[in-house]
Design a binder for these strands. Sequence first.
DNA 1: CATAAAAATAACAACGTTGTTATTAATGCG
DNA 2: CGCATTAATAACAACGTTGTTATTTTTATG
Lengths: 328, 328
Amino acid sequence: MTVTIKDIASVTGVSYSTVSKALNDSPLVKEVTKRKILEVAKEMGYEPNLAAKQLVRKKTEVVGLIWPTIERIVLATLVTNITQAFKDTRYSMILSIDPMDTAMETFRKFQVDGMIIFEDDHSKVNEEITMPFVSYGVSGKKHANHPVIDANHEASMMKAVEHLVKLGHKHIAYAGLLQTKDQLQLEKYQGYKKAMKEHSLEPFIKEVETEGLDWFDGYSAVKTLLEEQERPTAIIGGSYDISGGILRALQEQNVEVPKDISLISYDNIPQMANMEIPMTCIGVPVDVLAQEIVESVLHRIEAPEKEATVKKLAPTLVERETCGKANR
Amino acid sequence: MTVTIKDIASVTGVSYSTVSKALNDSPLVKEVTKRKILEVAKEMGYEPNLAAKQLVRKKTEVVGLIWPTIERIVLATLVTNITQAFKDTRYSMILSIDPMDTAMETFRKFQVDGMIIFEDDHSKVNEEITMPFVSYGVSGKKHANHPVIDANHEASMMKAVEHLVKLGHKHIAYAGLLQTKDQLQLEKYQGYKKAMKEHSLEPFIKEVETEGLDWFDGYSAVKTLLEEQERPTAIIGGSYDISGGILRALQEQNVEVPKDISLISYDNIPQMANMEIPMTCIGVPVDVLAQEIVESVLHRIEAPEKEATVKKLAPTLVERETCGKANR
DNA sequence: CATAAAAATAACAACGTTGTTATTAATGCG
DNA sequence: CGCATTAATAACAACGTTGTTATTTTTATG
């Protein structure tokens, strides 16, 4: 049998309501009794009954995360970081990898207080949802009337290009998914082009287009690139996986990084440090991204006013060992 | 405000206990009243309060799935299939990607009725756990006293080799992760060796060892292999990702599949059909794996007797287009 | 030291269900 | 038609909490 506040009450010889207050650290109970109760509770292995609490408080203190496409390592890292960020709050998180509607039904059943939704092209958020939620994705369509957390892709590319320019680079290529409807990928590419223009540079003549977002795609794109006459002096990799492939391809062809070609990757995750060569990268650090996301939901849950905040987060450039001075 | 059985009661003019019975399809309430109540409930958008139900029934009808390493697509597919399998039961599932102990704490808090644990080398199940659970993984250590669901790797390799032998192959290579402590990977390789022996064949001279489990690993392992003098006539790929890389490498080197080399992959997931060439594969089909896993937890939850069943599931070979007659 | 005020604790009603027991209505039968 | 069954419904006590109100104990004060 599980132990309840009543059990604690009879052991300590106080009423169960006092136990309840003590456990919630209420100022209404004397310090010494409080201490004793806490001690006994711990000793007995008391674990509060969430259901009972929920029943009276009408709050679950749980938020649901909808993540329909478990695939990219970057998102996995983000999820892990979000989990982490919740540790500092009194909320917990549960995860659903179901398609959006199914997931939402589950969460409604669990009566979560709010949701985080990873939006993608397959599952767009419909604006009718009554439950507090924030979405992480591209803030594209103008008037989302729910909070959106978004990484600022243009700013990322600006910073990346700027960094390379400072090192003397002029021939900067972007390697990523181009032919796609995936808004996020497009924004990165557009950001790159815009950044190049602002620095009065021509985008690298031959577009380095990957076929997908996998390691392999970066690998083969760059292998083809190296067969060309003209090589860039720097490459911006569109994602963690892609850049991994790029680096591999470069190494294999005995192109020295960063001596021959500098490489800078989109996505700012700790794993970047563990690559064959620790990778210089640009992007919103996952931990701040995570922090921002949970703060945002919690705020939304606790302050129900309906302003639609689209929050574009500023990227950070982390210098590691894949960028060097341009050699021409 | 959410609608409760009391609301339904006052609308239909019956007592709330009758409403409760009607909603649970009890034989104690007359058909006509039942119908009316159900109708009104639907109309009012009634959604049962899980917390209240849980409080009195002492059951959540929720099982938690612990999945500490979100990485392999195969596991993701398995998770999806498990979610699916739960649809046919009255249980739901929640997912945690936390390390095992953290995840377990969360689940204890939510008071799930049982757990499914994806065991790996980092997070071994400790046998002290009181909550009903099953683990999916390698049944290695003899006396697990909890249910273990395991794919029969030896049987898989037997079937794969047998299939190839029937097609006349003698030079069969296995491409997979060899130098590892990962029990699962080792079992596959050992299964392969055993199967070869039983068919009185020599394992392929040059071991095709991948450095990891990624697409790229299969790719580069096979590229090196093709530089060798002697080529196998068939390759068994150790996992979905690896096989994907193998196929890519083969294609790139203009080795025709299956004319020049036959390929058969471990892992039996639907995605195998969508590869560059639809892939013949071996393994327990994910859906039956999923089915088996959920049946197993539910059984464990509902019948608390403690027998330690290790269930090795029989693999199925799915013929597609990557295997053909041997050419020597 | 009596008593008012403040502090500490206890009692109790919720919360939305389920399951058991009590009550009322319908039905069958001599 | 009266009464015993049986069918249908109603009433009510749980479940483990929280929050509000009532009671008791302690402390301060003239």
